[in-house]
């Protein structure tokens, strides 16, 4: 056991913060596993829920948007596949965004009683949504096989888009997690944001519709950082037939990098006061 000296002082950012974080990786793993194993305790269907949710959402959307509203799919792409790809990445983003935003307040019993790098809380809260995401992606593959839809080389870029979606949820979630500690308004606000996001992002429809549109609001649409990620994700799965504007991806990357560094600074600055505010 090595003895090292710790200095506790006001406003002093921990010098070894990132090393501390690395040392606590086991705690990160255990907290992640806690959330995962608690998730479906005392449910009769258990992990099947991870399948039921995206499947029913897809069926409803196919019915409402394709059959009733008659929204067109990208040419050469089956509408259900396009929707399911959109739902998969959107659900991943929105659930991990929600979980991260609530991560600190949900773990308030830990915040007041034990020290560890607080970033572990938002990080560990991603696990649950990531597992749900993998289940949903598996469902996509099954349905793609059903449609005899074979992805091409684009699929190699899929991990990059997954990572981007993750970083996006982290960038926005972290910011709200901090504010949520002081103002529980955030917990009310988040479902609302997610609901709006669902409509302003290309999930039920293709961005091609907006690209073809001459309306005044069309240029604003592209400022949504999620557009590039969702379109890119679909493009990686469905290939060249899916609409993808690389310009929107650049917007996404810039927004995410900026916001992520802002949120991280904000979080690090405020994390020592969580216990006073919670």
């Amino acid at each position: 056991m090595k003895s090292e000296e710790v200095l506790i002082q006001s406003g002093r950012a921990e010098r070894h913060y990132w090393r501390d974080l690395w040392r606590n990786r086991e705690l990160l793993y255990i907290l992640s596993m806690r959330d995962v194993s608690v998730r479906y305790k005392q449910t009769a269907l258990g992990t099947a829920w991870g399948l039921i949710r995206p499947l029913t959402t897809m069926l409803i959307m196919v019915f409402v948007f394709s059959k009733i509203a008659k929204l067109p799919a990208d040419p050469g792409v089956p509408y259900p596949l396009m929707v399911l790809a959109g739902i998969t990445v959107w659900t991943f983003f929105s659930t991990s965004f929600t979980q991260i935003s609530n991560s600190v307040t949900l773990n308030s019993n830990l915040v007041t009683k034990v020290y560890f790098p607080r970033l572990i809380m938002p990080m560990s809260s991603i696990a649950v949504s990531f597992i749900d995401f993998l289940v949903s992606l598996g469902l996509y593959i099954v349905i793609a096989i059903w449609y005899k839809f074979v992805p091409d080389w684009h699929i190699l870029l899929l991990p990059a888009f997954i990572l981007l979606a993750l970083l996006a949820s982290f960038a926005f979630g972290l910011f709200f997690a901090v504010i949520n500690v002081r103002f529980r308004d955030i917990a009310q606000l988040i479902p609302f944001i997610v609901q709006i996001g669902f409509y302003i992002c290309p999930i039920a429809y293709s961005s091609r519709l907006v690209a073809d549109s001459q309306d005044w609001w069309a240029p604003i649409y592209w400022y949504n950082p999620m557009v590039g990620i969702i379109d890119g994700f679909r493009w990686a799965l469905l290939g060249e037939q899916a609409y993808f504007n690389p310009q929107s991806l650049i917007t996404s990357i810039i927004t995410i990098v900026l916001f992520l560094s802002f949120s991280l600074t904000f979080f690090r600055k405020r994390e020592n006061t969580f216990v006073d505010d919670i």
């Binding site: 710790v6 506790i8 002082q9 006001s10 406003g11 002093r12 915040v111 007041t112 009683k113 034990v114 020290y115 020592n272 216990v275 006073d276």
Partner: peptide, 8 residues
Amino acid sequence: ILSKIIEP
């Protein structure tokens, strides 16, 4: 404070 939970 000694447990690093709150800072002085």
